[in-house]
Computed example of a mutant assay.
Amino acid sequence: MKRSLIIFYAIIIYAVAELIWWGYMLVRLQPARFGMILGEGAMFVVVFLLGAYNMHKSVNKERKLQEQKKNFLLSVTHELKSPLASIKLLLQTIQKRDLTKAQTLDFIDKSLNDIERLDDMVENMLLASKIENRSYSFPKASFNLSTLVDTTVNRLQISKCDCNQQIIDAEIEPKIEITGDKFALTSVVTNLIENAVKYSRPCEALSVKLFRKDDKIYFQVADHGIGIPDEEKSRIFDRFYRVGSEDTRNTKGTGLGLYIVKQVLDKHEATIKVRDNRPAGSVFEVVFGLT
């Protein structure tokens, strides 16, 4: 890619230099037509440079996309290997050690959690692929959004802290019905909560709220994590985009979660906004219109 860019820029410089040279030669041969040559030459240079600039933007955009795809593949490989290695170790321990029933059940629970994590990841990749190929129809039906959010919160609740505290503080208004694609909206709720957990410090509390207000349904996820810089807020819903530098980032992820969230909500004519939390972190707010 770098070699192609060098060749591209070299051709641009050569073409501009040749244009200036031929313009100079024409003026020497026909001094009386200096104004016409200068005007037409200037117009050609402007059009040429505009084309070159747009070409540069396209090439640069493609280069960044290729880098993001490469990082995505590396991230997916790591994300898949980590839970698989954990499941393998847990099952080998059950197989080779004489464990108590309580220990065995604990190891099985941990294995099931890792399997659910793998399942979420595979569902994300499949849904993102279908959205990208426009092969997903988003079948809609009426269902209880309150139950969906409550079930997801309970599944993602973390209790690995020394204080054994409940880090997801949920305020869910009961019996909120909505018409939509339950499978796709489950992915929205899961991705937003998982992101909040992922970008928060261990045992850091986060908030999940679902409520009705002014003929609208609000779903909010607030964390006290690292936050999102203002210059990146407009890009976080792009495919493969992840906050921060690829070289220094420690947070796991594939860059598909928020892309899926935005695409699914657009299909449901819902909006999503992100704002800074106080004193630190981010708040994601989804707004559905009641139908």
Results as ranks from 00 to 15, higher is better:
3 R>L: 15
6 I>K: 11
8 F>M: 04
11 I>L: 10
17 A>C: 05
20 I>L: 10
21 W>G: 10
21 W>D: 10
24 Y>I: 10
31 P>F: 06
31 P>Q: 04
34 F>W: 12
41 G>L: 02
41 G>S: 03
42 A>M: 09
47 V>T: 10
56 H>A: 07
59 V>R: 12
60 N>A: 11
68 Q>G: 08
69 K>T: 07
81 K>M: 01
83 P>E: 02
88 K>V: 10
89 L>A: 11
95 Q>Y: 11
98 D>Q: 15
100 T>L: 05
105 L>N: 06
106 D>C: 04
117 R>S: 15
118 L>C: 01
124 N>S: 14
124 N>M: 11
130 K>P: 03
130 K>A: 14
137 S>F: 07
138 F>S: 00
141 A>Q: 13
142 S>P: 01
146 S>G: 03
146 S>H: 01
146 S>R: 01
149 V>C: 01
151 T>E: 09
159 S>F: 07
162 D>K: 14
171 E>C: 09
171 E>A: 12
173 E>F: 06
179 T>R: 02
184 A>P: 01
184 A>G: 01
186 T>A: 08
194 E>G: 15
198 K>T: 10
199 Y>S: 01
205 A>I: 15
212 R>D: 08
214 D>Q: 10
221 V>E: 00
225 G>K: 02
226 I>V: 07
227 G>M: 02
231 E>A: 14
247 D>I: 13
247 D>T: 12
254 T>K: 10
257 G>V: 06
262 K>Q: 07
266 D>K: 04
267 K>D: 08
268 H>R: 00
280 A>R: 13
282 S>I: 03
284 F>D: 00
291 T>S: 13
